[in-house]
Every structure is written in structure tokens, then in C-alpha cells.
Write a protein that binds this DNA or RNA. Structure first.
Length: 479
RNA sequence: GCCUCAGUAGCUCAGCCGGUUAGAGCACUUGACUGUUAAUCAAGGGGUCCUAGGUUCGAAUCCUAGCUGGGGCGCCA
């Protein structure tokens, strides 16, 4: 085997890496490949053997569909060995392409030789039948070989590309905002501490831990947001975005929370809240369109087996004009609704999950809620003229609730400083952030999109742990 | 953190108002089958009934505690 590999028999990269035959390429070109001899590598998804011939459904990861490989005793020296191939085994298949217009699949491979590259043992847990998501979560290293997870993770990859494409097409600069940060000023949730101190024997002065002895000479954490750094870049490049991992140490136990997730945070200078919402709306529509165009098979599968009406839902989002209402108007709608909410809607308070669901249903389309009471929002959001609300916006979508939160940022030095004092944010620690308002400040705005939640929305998958390859949640750091 | 449901074969589950030898389908093994499509048919192997205590002549079944997982709420993206 290794000798084969050294000779380049597996891939033939040296000669023609771009012409590597894959299941995807075959599906694209099979009409012109009839009777041609090809070589495929892949894994057995299903296998049905009979006395003198058999059928193997081969998947090589490049395409959602499998290819049916037909093998016959007459053509294989190792027929008896191949007949016993189990699901999960990896194979090298040489064969001839044959069009099969009268069968469920458009073409198949008549095998001329099959070599077992790696056998799969009897207790391979993934079977050709429906498995529970819970079971597959516990086999996260194998679940990506199932239909559902091939679909989800290919779409995840496409969605990443769609987001970069959207921003790069508009000349946004991508910045890698820091993952380790000493600032916890944003107050966006519990943080994971990063330290090289010996926790069994921490240096102390008086009673407190002496962080001057720690790696950075101060207390450090994993980031909860790259926004503040993005703002700094926006004041140089005008339009920028971050796209990276984010960490929250909350002990949340829900289908929409993970300890490690990815966020997209665009930040635009010389822009107000309306521009911000325009950007968000355009982005949501475009990235959905990209996925629907580039993952047709996967989306059709999800539409059929995961969320009935998924395609209609997404079409509706792409065609609709997102509603825009103020927080006050939202509360009015809720108060007038003939629904007994567990939480009484209040002009003074945040929307509960049940409120978001009602609003999404009320409009039957995504809806921006703007102008929130200042005391329930972050210090950096721009104070409106009424002095009571801030120029914030949340985008609420049917079925998934809030997927975007954004705001116009407070660009006025004095107002920002006052808000920091009111909200007990240490202005010394964020001196650099205040500096941005001293040297050529601009009206600017931005938002944060929870990438994994967006993926849930697009795939219809209801649990965030099923859209993250190896999810991290409280008490769960397997794999 | 709070409320709730569950844990029986590799998987999905039945059995659970206590009763002696714990079942089914799929998977696996062996065989049959000349075109299968989650193929079909026959036979076979496979169990810490989550763990620890308790009640009882007897516990998968009842009680207590714990562990693990699901769902809902809260915190948030």
C-alpha cells in the first residue's frame, strides 16, 4: 500500500492533480465519459451482494450523491473478498462508466478491479439507516460520513466562502481580530481565562492573585467579540469585517448556545443605522442565494428530511423586504396581540424568546427591531436624540429568533465617555478606543452575525451542536 | 442556574401495576438468490437491563442518591 502511495498511484498529483477523477467530476461529465476507464477512491456507504455480482454505493466526499459500483465474479479476481466488504471500508475502484437511463441513477461504474485500501471492522457504528442526532453527536469523528452531516458541513464550507465573497466583492478589508484579549470591558458574557500561571500554586500578593506574574503581565481572556478592534480598522479602511472564533463561558444549556462559535462582524465608517441594516439585509439575502445555488442536492435533501418547507422559507426571505420597526412599536404589537405571554411585554425591557417568535410570525418575514432602551444595551451604542434610546438593531427571523445584533456606534467623545461612566466601564482600559473619537472620528456602524446560527437557519438543523464539526459546550470537550 | 423526560443487544425501541430462561427490527456471521437501490429470504452469535445503595422469598420493573443525555426556560450570538 505504502509503496503504491509513493509511486503516486493514488492521486497522480504530479501528472494531473487538477484532473483527479472524483464522484463530483463524474456527475458533471458522465455523458462524455461513457465506456471510458476511470479510477475512483472512496468509502463504502452501502453494499448489496449476490451470488455472482454485487452493488457498492461509493462516496468520496466530493459530492452528496454516491456512485453505484457494479462488480461481477467474471471480472474480479478477488470477487469473494470484495463480496464481504463492509460499510465504511475505503476502496480503490477501477472501472468503466456506463450510462443507465432506465435505472434510478443516471450512470454507474462497471468494476474491472477493486482494491480494499482500508477494511472496516464489524462494529462500525454508522449503518445505512436513520440514526438519532444524539447518538451521532457521540460519534462526531464518524458522523461526517452520513448524508445529513455531509450536507451540513459542505454547506458550512460554502457559507464561509459566501461570506468572504460578499464582503470582498464590496472591497471590505478582512481583519484577524485578536483571540486573546485583556479587555473584558464589553461585558458581553462570561469569559474563559487564559493563563500560564500554575493553578496549583498561584503567586499572590496580599490575598489576590498577582497577575503581573502571568504571561501577559495582566489578566487575559479568550475574546467574546472582535468589534472594538474592527472599529479601529474601520477608521483606517472604512469598510472592514472580522470572521473568526468567539468564546463564551456561560453555562448555557440550549440548542442555540455553544462555548466556541464563529462570528462575522462587519464595521462600516461614514455610515448610520440605516446603512447598517441595508448591509445586513443585502448580506443575508446574498449568502442564502449563494448556498441555494451551490448546494442544490444538499438543500433538496434538507428540505425533504430535516425541515419541510425550508426552500420556500429561504426563497421568501430572499424576495421579501425586511420589516423595520422600533422597539416601542414592537411592544405595541405584542401588547395588542391576543396572546397570553409568560413575560409581559414592556417598553423598558428586552424581548423574550416568545416575543421574538410572535413578531417573526406577525410579519412572516425577517424584521429589524431598532431604537432600544439604552440601559439594556451596550455602552458603545449611539445615544438617540431622545436621550432614552440607542441606535441599535436586532434582526429577528422566523424560527431562529435573533441572528444579528448591531448598532450605530457612539462617535462623540464626550457622550461616549459619559456612557462608559454610567455603565461602569473602565475608561482607562479603553483609552485606545476613546482615542478613535479624538482623531478623525466618523459616524460608523456595524453588526455581529452568529455564523453557526445562520447555518442552522439555512439548513433547518435545530441544534447548534449539529452544525459545528466538533462542538464545545459546558461539560463537553470530546474529540 | 431552574423545570421536565429518558437511560434495556452495535443502533432504534418493546417489556416496567415485581415472578424464575429479557424480546423485536436493523447491523454482524454463515448460507440462498442473474440487477439490487435502507434489496429480499433462512439460520446463528451477541446483554454490567446507566451506577451505587435500599425494600422484598424474588428487582430491568418499586424507593433513594448520583452520573449521562434530550427538551423547555434564563443568560446570550
Amino acid at each position: 500500500m505504502f509503496a503504491l502511495k509513493r509511486k503516486g498511484v493514488f492521486y497522480g498529483y504530479r501528472e494531473a492533480s487538477l484532473m483527479k477523477m472524483t464522484v463530483k467530476r463524474l456527475y458533471e461529465t458522465y455523458e462524455t465519459q461513457t465506456d471510458k476507464k476511470i479510477t475512483l477512491f472512496g468509502w463504502v456507504r452501502n453494499h448489496r451482494s449476490q451470488k455472482a455480482f454485487g452493488f457498492i454505493n461509493l462516496n468520496d466526499g466530493t459530492f452528496f450523491e454516491t456512485i453505484q459500483v457494479v462488480y461481477e465474479a467474471d471480472h474480479l479476481e478477488n470477487f469473494e473478498e470484495i463480496r464481504k466488504t463492509r460499510i465504511g471500508a475505503s476502496l480503490r475502484v477501477e472501472g468503466v462508466v456506463e450510462a443507465t437511463p432506465n435505472r434510478p441513477q443516471p450512470f454507474e461504474i462497471k468494476a474491472r478491479s477493486i482494491e480494499i485500501v482500508g477494511d472496516s471492522e464489524e462494529d462500525y457504528p454508522i449503518q445505512p439507516k436513520r440514526h438519532s442526532r444524539e447518538f451521532l453527536r457521540e460519534h462526531a469523528h464518524l458522523r461526517s460520513r452520513t448524508n445529513l452531516f455531509t450536507a451540513v458541513f459542505r454547506i458550512r464550507s460554502l457559507l464561509t466562502h459566501a461570506i468572504h465573497t460578499f464582503f470582498q466583492d464590496r472591497d471590505f478589508i478582512h481583519l484577524a481580530s485578536p483571540i486573546i484579549t485583556a479587555s473584558d470591558a464589553e461585558g458581553a458574557g462570561e469569559m474563559f481565562q487564559v493563563t500560564t500561571l500554575d493553578l496549583e500554586n498561584t503567586p499572590k500578593s496580599e490575598k489576590a492573585v498577582d497577575y503581573s506574574k502571568d504571561f501577559f503581565g495582566r489578566k487575559a481572556n479568550l475574546t467574546v467579540s472582535g468589534q472594538l478592534q474592527a472599529e479601529a480598522f474601520a477608521q483606517a479602511f472604512r469598510d472592514v469585517y472580522t470572521f473568526g472564533p468567539t468564546f463564551r463561558a456561560e453555562k448555557s444549556h440550549t440548542a442555540t448556545h455553544a462555548s466556541e462559535f464563529w462570528m462575522i462582524e462587519p464595521e462600516i465608517a461614514f455610515a448610520d443605522l440605516e446603512d447598517d441594516m441595508d448591509l445586513a439585509e443585502e448580506m443575508v439575502k446574498e449568502i442564502i442565494g449563494y448556498v441555494m445555488k451551490h448546494a442544490e442536492k444538499e438543500m433538496a435533501f434538507l428540505n425533504k428530511f430535516v425541515e419541510k418547507g425550508l426552500l420556500d422559507k429561504l426563497q421568501n426571505v430572499m424576495q421579501s423586504k425586511f420589516a423595520r420597526i422600533t422597539h416601542r412599536e414592537a411592544i405595541d404589537i405584542l401588547k395588542q396581540a391576543k396572546v397570553a405571554f409568560e413575560n409581559e411585554p414592556s417598553y423598558d425591557r428586552d424581548l423574550a424568546t416568545e416575543h421574538e417568535k410572535h413578531l417573526a410570525k406577525h410579519f412572516d418575514a425577517p424584521v429589524f427591531v431598532t431604537d432600544w432602551p439604552k440601559h439594556i444595551k451596550a455602552f458603545y451604542m449611539r445615544l438617540n436624540d431622545d436621550k432614552e434610546t440607542v441606535a441599535a438593531m436586532d434582526l429577528i427571523v422566523p424560527k431562529s429568533g435573533e441572528i444579528i445584533g448591531g448598532s450605530q456606534r457612539e462617535e462623540r467623545y464626550d457622550v461616549l465617555l459619559k456612557r462608559m461612566e454610567e455603565m461602569n466601564v473602565d475608561s482607562e482600559e479603553l483609552k485606545w478606543y476613546l482615542d478613535l473619537r479624538k482623531y478623525g472620528t466618523t459616524p460608523h456602524a456595524g453588526f455581529g452575525l452568529g455564523f453557526d446560527r445562520m447555518l442552522m437557519y439555512i439548513t433547518g438543523v435545530a441544534n447548534i451542536r449539529d452544525v459545528i464539526p466538533f462542538p464545545r459546550t459546558p461539560k463537553n470537550c470530546e474529540f
